[in-house]
Amino acid sequence: MAARKTTKKPNVSAEELKAYYHDMLLIRRFEEKAGQLYGMGLIGGFCHLYIGQEAVVVGLEATAKEGDSRITTYRDHGHMLACGMDPNGVMAELTGREDGYSKGKGGSMHMFSKDKRFYGGHGIVGANVPLGAGLAFADKYKGNDAVTFTYFGDGAANQGQVYETFNMAALWQLPCIFVIENNQYAMGTSQQRSTSSAEIWERGKAFGIPGEAVDGMDVLAVKAAGETAVAHCRSGKGPYILEIKTYRYRGHSMSDPAKYRTREEVQKMRDERDPIEAVRTLLLQGEHATEEDLKAIDKKIKDVVNESAEFAKTSPEPALDELWTDIYATEIPQEA
């Protein structure tokens, strides 16, 4: 299948393309494994998979530099892998074990890495948006040129606090990239049934925040738009909105009856717009890689994912004493 043409395709090297292929495939395989472990009862509670949306976070992470921050919702596994967090630690958190990123106390929706400037994993729809602007505020305050990627969904875009945040971010020129991952549904509610504007990013205009809609099934288009946004924010011009049109293949969480859309709709997306297939085609057609090269990548990823599952199964449950730790700090945690 052929990737859809994008208008502004950046020059991209074979190495870069291979890296995107690798990073997206890692997320996909990791998520498939997580789904499997959930089915086996090793992962509990809510578990929201990122399958289908991989190009969004991989394309944007390609534009980030050391010192930038990111924050997202409960649909966070992809973001963590893309920013370089360890698959073992992520998977072990999913199984609620001692070696997880939150020592087993956070779970799928609440994981963090100070080291990678990944500020969560948030369970309350909309609540991470002002937090992202706050991270950007801190960077501006400190006078560095870091930016914050603040991810949220199309459904979250109707929360009032999003617009309170837009106002302040514009007013104070905060280096914040608002990334609306528009996968067209908020649980079972389609965008048309919940949202008065067809183009969510245009709401930013009321606040004087520039933005654009982006094809989120095309990692190169995402990266190109990300570069524009990052350049804008880094140069001190204030926030930027990217509404990235994407699609989730799986249910909202593991317990979604998915009656709100047809199987054909999902299948059509998978067949015609899959972001990983698109890059694969580019690699092969441009003769940047051979089938063998790609097989080797697939194999490597499979090993990493299997190892993470093994690690997550064998890591011990947290000690009971952990119940009582981390409730109050005894000193101010050092900034990352």
């Binding site: 939150s102 106390k105 449950e317 947290p318």
Partner: peptide, 16 residues
Amino acid sequence: GKDVPMPYAANLEKHA
């Protein structure tokens, strides 16, 4: 309930 935010880990949750 215990005086802690709810932990995710199965064993800790039971104790919380």
